[in-house]
Design a protein around this nucleic acid. Structure first.
Lengths: 234, 234
DNA sequence: CATATTCAATATGTATACAAGAAGTACGCA
DNA sequence: TGCGTACTTCTTGTATACATATTGAATATG
């Protein structure tokens, strides 16, 4: 079964990049990975080319492969662009979805909900990723899909970056996200394009708020350092 | 300088696909192309992977490379999606363009205008392609750029498909397009985002109308087949 | 001591030989 | 003649050896 080795390599690298097991900007060692996946450098390089084409990696001539980086500029652009693409994809998905795609979506949501219940961050991230990828496929629009795939890569990585396993607020948010998924499935099944678009934007807001709260947390209480009434005087 | 062979191959294949020298759906012969460009199959395959990643080709396992097809479904999606992406890219380009990019844009427009004057369809198509690609780069948005690149591939190919060299109406349209390019450059230079977006949509309408008139031409005059006054009776 | 410069070590790029798979052809049989 | 099957041929995929490029360290030189 050598056939699957290359496919496995591709999938595993995707997973490791999405879960930050390999960090943004890290460079990949051809020889080491070839040995790890028991394939020669030739097919590994083809995997690299594909991952680069999909936006997971960047290739520099004579300088190997790097995981796509996530600088401030990239993040700014991400927050600027995501709602536009997500909302339009959502609309089209409601209109063009097929029954088979709907079944796949439901199954992935079952897996996502299970991951939420078990508090398995990695499974949550990957199932959420596939969930939104399937909605993208439902839209049957190759042009927007090219954007969406790239957005989802960064969205999943940001989600992992900002995920705090122990926080009660986080658990509530994740549960809320799961419920929104359910609502989206129902609306897509009913082909209610407007509703799906609205739900998608709410879903986006939830996700964005979660990330924002991580970057800009509530300030520490001032009075623990014995300022007493001084709080109002500042 | 063997270094350029692979690059040449990549560029030449792009050009031949964009100008329809290789038709949509055609499959590419590895051995023949390797010989043509004087490279071995290994680097040629890497070129294939890159072109596939960019949307020029599709790769099927054990079945080689095909030029991306242009069926009715693809065209429908194209007309549906292009204005959204073009308008948003235009806005961002006006805001984020650098002086260096503006210079490049001006130079490409000079080449485009020259091609129009000389009625060289191929040079027109390729320079127009690069013109809009540069505007895309000005937007500094990798997500939308992924969509734009794919849209431009199909836009350029459709333009070639529907181009009628001899038609006076066509010549007028192409001249108009060139003038719109000039106006866009001026507005981008002035960072007038709203104006650039408007001009871009006008530019899009012109292009769309040109293609539409090709598909749905004016009907033949009825009276040449000697119906005489019968015209009004039909 | 700082800065070039050369050479070794390492990593990337290419060619070629071989393996595996797909497609076409000829033959046999009903 | 129609269909199926084995065999041949052509195409695609992989491994490996070799060529080229880059990096880093050691040495020379101002």
């Amino acid at each position: 079964m050598k056939i699957t080795r290359k496919q496995d390599c591709l999938e595993d690298l995707k997973h490791r990049i999405l879960t930050l097991a390999i960090q943004p900007g890290a460079d990949l060692d051809e020889a080491a990975l070839a040995e790890r996946y028991e394939i020669s450098r030739t097919p590994l390089r083809e995997v690299f080319q594909r991952l680069a084409g999909a936006g997971f990696l960047t290739l520099a001539d004579n300088r190997g492969a790097k995981v796509a980086s996530m600088g401030l500029g990239v993040m700014r652009t991400f927050f600027q662009t995501a709602p536009l693409i997500y909302a339009n994809i959502a609309r089209l998905a409601a209109e063009h979805r097929t029954p088979a795609q709907l079944d796949r979506l439901k199954n992935v949501q079952i897996a996502f909900a299970a991951a939420v219940a078990a508090q398995e961050a990695e499974a949550m991230a990957l199932n959420n990723h596939v969930f939104h990828e399937i909605i993208g496929e439902m839209a049957h629009n190759t042009y927007l899909m090219a954007s969406l795939r790239r957005l989802l890569i960064d969205h999943t990585r940001l989600g992992q970056m900002f995920y705090r396993p122990a926080s009660p607020a986080e658990n509530a948010a994740v549960l809320m996200a799961s419920q929104q998924h359910e609502a989206m499935i129902a609306a897509i099944a009913a082909q209610e394009a407007g509703i799906v678009a609205d739900l998608t934007l709410q879903h986006w807001d939830l996700s964005r708020d979660r990330m924002e709260r991580f970057v800009r947390p509530d300030p520490l209480p001032l009075d623990v350092i014995e300022f007493g009434e001084a709080r109002d005087a500042v």
